[in-house]
């Protein structure tokens, strides 16, 4: 009986329709894994892009939220998935920082994936509670240096955009502030609005509406140029912090071994999606822009990932903060 079963399963495996291949891809629903919970900024980016890509590919792309451990659970899930082009990963800068933040990762960001392309790079803004004394970036830096023992810096947890930005900012101004972690951006923003903490640096996704409403004080944006949505907000470079250029970049990945033709098809669909009117409009509402066409390519994403891993490794090691 056992032998029969074994023979049967071998026969069945042999009959297994060989990967129908890149010509007919995609022929069923594609799952896009977002390694964070539903409703967050990365989830929003993923849902917008997935919807536009679905139309281009002619197959539905559904978003699956696989949260946990700073995005590493979802990334590991995709790294181990079948490389058939039906499981994708939309991840942000955490792909690069987790390589240092987590000392035991079940995957290697540079070896376990194929790359489709960059999606968007969300700028960061340096903000403070509404009644904070300083009025511009220079004033802020001077104040922080003078009162470093009294000022608190809020972040949304280890590995979060606000944590990374804080690390970079404190290293740039060579001043250590007291860091107050929160469970996500929502509660951190609440305490900033209420004046319970002093300073924060977070994605425009979370801060633009607050800045526009004057509910917080804003000092600088970390993008190379000023933002259309916040024309009065100087860039960090204008304020004298030239190296404080940084954004939360998002990339689209597939498991290692996915057919290059499929990756090409995905990159193609991504390029179309990034020009989609709805995507451009919605991104603009979040004060970000889709990546230009030349960046929605495997090469651009891989290069970005490599340079970002190299950039964050010394910063994280110097801070001595690890997530495991």
């Amino acid at each position: 009986m056992k032998k029969l079963l074994a023979t049967l399963s071998i026969a069945a495996l042999a009959l297994l329709p060989q990967v129908a291949g890149a010509q007919t891809y995609p022929e069923r629903t594609i799952t896009m894994v977002v390694p964070f919970s539903a409703g967050g900024p990365t989830d929003t980016v993923a849902r917008l892009v997935a919807e536009a890509m679905s139309r281009e590919l002619g197959q539905q792309i559904i978003v699956e939220n696989v949260g946990g451990a700073g995005g590493t659970v979802g990334a590991a899930r995709v790294a181990q998935a079948a490389p058939d082009g039906y499981t994708l990963l939309l991840h942000h800068i955490g792909m690069a920082t987790s390589a240092t933040l987590y000392r035991k990762l079940p995957y290697n960001p540079l070896e376990s994936f194929e790359y489709a392309g960059l999606v968007t790079e969300v700028p960061m803004t340096i903000i403070a509670r509404p009644d904070f004394p300083a009025d511009d970036l220079q004033g802020l830096i001077a104040y922080l240096k003078e009162h470093k023992d009294d000022v608190t810096y809020a972040n949304a947890g280890i590995g979060a955009a606000s944590h990374l930005c804080g690390m970079l900012f404190m290293s740039e101004i060579e001043t250590q502030l007291t860091t107050v972690p929160y469970q996500g951006t929502g509660p951190a923003m609440t305490d900033l609005l209420g004046g319970q903490v002093d300073v924060m640096c977070d994605q425009t996704t979370n801060t633009t509406s607050q800045i526009q409403a004057g509910a917080v004080k804003a000092y600088a944006v970390t993008s190379p140029e000023r933002l259309e949505q916040l024309p009065d907000l100087p860039t960090a470079a204008e304020g004298g912090l030239a190296s404080m250029q940084f954004g939360i970049w998002h990339g689209l990945y597939a498991p290692k071994g996915t057919d290059p033709a499929i990756m090409e098809r995905l990159s193609q669909a991504l390029k179309v999606a990034l020009k989609d009117k709805n995507v451009v409009e919605r991104f603009a509402a979040l004060a970000t822009k889709p990546e230009p066409e030349e960046n929605a390519t495997p090469q651009a994403l891989k290069a970005k990932l490599e340079s970002e891993i190299a950039r964050w490794k010394p910063l994280i090691e110097a801070a001595g903060v690890y997530a495991d």
């Binding site: 919970s37 539903a38 409703g39 967050g40 900024p41 989830d43 929003t44 849902r47 917008l48 996500g184 929502g186 996704t205 633009t208 509406s209 607050q210 526009q212 409403a213 509910a215 409009e281 919605r282 509402a285 979040l286």
Partner: peptide, 18 residues
């Protein structure tokens, strides 16, 4: 948090100005 996600996808950024 889910509601906020839904609003953003609809192109409305929740905040004091809504």
């Amino acid at each position: 948090a889910l509601m906020i996600g839904a609003m953003i996808i609809q192109g409305i950024v929740p905040g004091p100005n809504v």
